[in-house]
Design a protein around this nucleic acid. Structure first.
Length: 261
DNA sequence: ATGACCCCCGCAGGGGGA
């Protein structure tokens, strides 16, 4: 099974790029963030023609998430329970006996201290969601743009200042609290060391200098983690004409193990 | 140099992003 997450930075600007990528990569699921359109403006027909069903939570101008799924699925929630902000930042589906949460965390650098507090509130609600799914023994993945560099290796030297909301100790501690529940960071499970950036700012030629960040992540519940086969950012997409500033992050899982009881 | 990129709305330039 092939799962991907991609902050596309406007699905309407990136439609042809995403369709080409889907045709080439053939994922079973693509979780997109920052679609930047209202739900009824989402180019649903184009994705359906490509063989995908769509779970869309949009809003005007900003934010917005959409999950593309091949085959049967249902939407389990169109918002993150326990997070009161109305921004379109979470959609969750059930497919192939697993729950897939698609999330776009607040950046936390705008809106002053309240803006940063909202980021931590989202992380608290996400942690509660993970705890609930673990208690139910549901297999699940939580994927998307976390807007957190979990460790120093995930931020290129000089890319961000020490006070930036993406690297602040409280942001990193909140990310670790998710892991401590028993979740697995798919990228680091297979690539414990080294840079694995998923984002390069449009400004200051950061792509040419490989001055990037790892901020797009997929966390796996225990049984899914046992099936983990590969986890790779698709750097090719950053070199395309008119790219998103984020690249797709692709995770493949082995088929569920046959019962050997 | 109040620079520099890109997208949004909507028609000028301000907000947001990371």
């Amino acid at each position: 099974m092939k799962l991907a997450t991609w902050n596309v930075n406007s699905v309407r600007q990136r439609l042809d790029l995403v369709l080409d990528w889907l045709k080439r990569e053939q994922p079973d699921v693509l979780m997109m963030q920052e679609i930047k359109c209202e739900t009824d403006q989402f180019p649903k027909a184009a994705f359906e023609d490509a063989g995908y069903g769509c779970a869309v939570v949009g809003q005007k101008s900003y934010n917005g998430v959409a999950t593309l799924v091949r085959g049967d699925f249902s939407v389990t929630t169109d918002h993150l329970p326990g997070f009161s902000d109305p921004a379109a930042r979470y959609v969750e589906v059930r497919t192939q006996d697993m729950v897939l949460g698609n999330l776009y965390l607040p950046n936390g650098n705008s809106g002053g201290e309240q803006g940063y507090a909202t980021k931590l509130e989202f992380l608290n609600a996400l942690t509660a969601r993970a705890r609930l799914l673990l208690a139910e023994e549901t297999d699940f993945a939580l994927a998307g743009d976390y807007n957190i560099c979990p460790a120093p290796i995930d931020c290129a030297p000089g890319a961000l200042g020490p006070e930036d909301a993406l690297v602040r100790p409280q942001s990193r501690a909140a990310y670790r609290r998710l892991l401590w529940l028993g979740l697995t960071d798919a990228l680091r499970a297979l690539h414990p060391t080294g840079a694995a950036y998923t984002f390069w700012d449009y400004q200051a030629r950061t792509w040419e200098r490989d001055c990037g960040l790892r901020i797009d992540h997929m966390l796996l519940s225990p049984r899914l983690a046992e099936r983990l086969q590969s986890a790779e950012p698709d750097r090719n997409e950053r070199a395309m004409p008119r790219p998103s500033d984020h690249v797709p992050f692709i995770v493949t899982l082995k088929d569920p193990a046959k019962t050997n009881a």
